[in-house]
Amino acid sequence: MGEGIRKERKEKNMKKRLIALFGIAVIGVGAYFLTQGKIFPKGLKVIAVATLMTHPILDTVQTNMIEELQREGYVDGKTVRIIFRNANGQMQVVPSIADELVAQNPDLIIAITTPMAQALKKIARCPVVFGAVTDPVGAGLVSSLDQGETMITGTSDAVPYDEQLRLIRQITPNAKRLGVLFNPGEAASQYAIKQLRKYAPEFGFTLVEGSVSSTGDVYPVAQDLAGKVDAILISTDNTVAAGIAAALKVAYKQKIPLYACDSGSVEKGALAAVSAGYPQVGIDTGKLAVRMLKGERGIPTVLAKGSEIYINKKAAELMGTKITDETLKTATKVFETIKE
């Protein structure tokens, strides 16, 4: 239509405004990053901690790791400066978080979860400690588990899947079909599902795989699985862990036993787990960080020690599963309630 000239003039004005807005935004963001650097009192070592997202396992690792650091004398704000970054489950921002942290020139980087560790190892100029990575060799972080490397080391939380299946068999002897909720897009879960496929026949289980691509899928896929299986297992999958509430909802409603592979999830209401002791994983990560900060190099990967059994009695009740006293005695820890 004929509004050409009027429109042109208006658009020129609006362009000016947009440029002004943009300029303000750039200055604002720049100021933010600049002040981040300025807050460090001079001389303090800088530790950068990055994680993929929030959920029980990772929180346990991180909390225990920080506590261990404090025990060894590294206290945030007093003897050291710790920067935290959380990708909140957004895989796309992982590289930019990595970039940003490396740009801050830390003395040590602690990367929790496989994707974060991979991104940071690639560009880090300082030593890296990875935490709670299920398969460090498969992820390309180290070439072998026994040999140490110069600039990188860390803890592995590989779950003993055969032990896990044994426990499931023990608590629910009649279960034949085992449903597995996982996100095939996660490296740890790829590893887990391979292990499970390997061990399942040994323990008399038929696996029914329920794959999810985002937290929103957890509820419908869990519901669908529940109709097809006798028990459900969730491994250390970040996506499923974020949606654990939904999986539990299904388990309680349909009275299906839901097993996990970490203590945090059992505390939150899963029936039982054979877990790498995640608090210990956190402590070990902290110990490695301290050694690297002191200058030690070439430390081999620290594997999660022992398999501990965690059981939640309240969950058993809600799922309609009976647990024998014998089994309870073998447990490292028995939870009486469900933590929200």
Binding site: M1, G2, E3, I5, R6, R9
Partner: peptide, 12 residues
Amino acid sequence: STLLKAISGRIK
């Protein structure tokens, strides 16, 4: 037509 558009405020 331009004249009508001008009178109805559609063109500056």
